[in-house]
């Protein structure tokens, strides 16, 4: 199908700013779904609140636009109650890891078959450019007028430590890689996390000396490196991309089916 068959065209042009990386993530996500030929009726997309979460308004699947930070909790209810559905949860960085941080680690721990996409633009965009837990110390934001002293989470390490079965990272510059990682994540049976570095030229860029989306994507190109291309003794300070975890661990809904089977037999 064409991209237009996956979107609610009447809402376009979308509300995101010119050059916003979230549009590229949506673009890539649609391609991934199309390549995998998943019927639209089988997909539930759940989002929270923020710029990122508006994606659910645009994609023509079953969409649930929820509360700030809580998307994964709603998604758990959708998935466990109907495990045959594919549940995809696009989230912002503040949404996923600040207000939703607890839900994020527990979703990873349970390893329920849900795909979480962290659209990391390192800023609260919807509210006008406040620092997020992924901005990192030394950055500038409207609520850090003297510079940010809050260190950042590493989404990959966090997801890995919390038990996610699949963890990957890409950027909006590396679109073909992004699409490939999204496909792998959606196919993975278990909780999968894909962090996608996404540009917010309007706020993060403006506050941090990058005037345009192009500058920011150039930055993703220059300052990231694919895991597969790291030579022996690599020590450059670049953000790594690729698949960090890909392990088959017991998936929650399948495990629960075992519980049902024993309960029905009257075992305790």
């Amino acid at each position: 199908m064409a991209v237009r068959d996956y979107i609610r065209q009447r809402f376009f042009p979308h509300l995101w700013c010119p050059g916003c990386g979230h549009g590229i993530v949506m673009n890539g996500l649609i391609r991934a779904i199309d390549h995998m030929a998943i019927p639209k009726n089988d997909i539930v997309m759940v989002s929270g609140i923020g710029c990122s979460s508006r994606i659910t308004g645009y994609v023509d699947v079953h969409t649930l636009h929820t509360l700030h930070g809580r998307a994964l909790a709603f998604a758990a209810g959708v998935k466990l109650s109907r495990p045959e559905l594919r549940v995809i949860v696009p989230m912002g960085d503040g949404d996923a890891l600040s207000i939703g941080g607890n839900h994020f680690i527990h979703a990873a721990r349970r390893n329920m078959d849900i795909t979480a996409i962290v659209m990391n633009n390192r800023i609260y965009g919807m509210t006008g450019g406040q620092f997020s837990p992924l901005s990192g110390s030394g950055t500038q934001a409207s609520t850090a007028p003297f510079g940010n002293i809050d260190p950042a989470f590493d989404v990959v390490s966090l997801a890995k430590a919390a038990g996610a079965g699949f963890v990957a990272r890409s950027t909006t510059y590396h679109v073909t890689e992004m699409i490939d990682l999204l496909k792998q994540a959606i196919s993975h049976r278990g909780f999968s996390v894909v962090e996608i570095l996404s540009q917010c030229p309007t706020y993060f860029g403006k506050h941090n000396g990058m005037e345009s989306a192009v500058d920011m994507m150039e930055n993703f190109r220059k300052n990231t490196k694919s895991l597969g291309k790291i030579p022996e003794g690599y020590s450059e300070d670049k953000v790594l991309r690729g698949v960090f975890v890909n392990e088959n661990r017991p998936e929650y809904c399948q495990e629960y089916e075992r519980i049902i089977a024993s309960a029905m037999k009257g075992e305790t």
Binding site: W16, P18, H22, G23, I30, R31, T176
Partner: peptide, 13 residues
């Protein structure tokens, strides 16, 4: 296809 895939506005085909 890079322009199409990188277009945040889904405006290029």
């Amino acid at each position: 296809m890079m322009c199409e895939l990188r277009c945040p506005d889904l405006a290029i085909e």
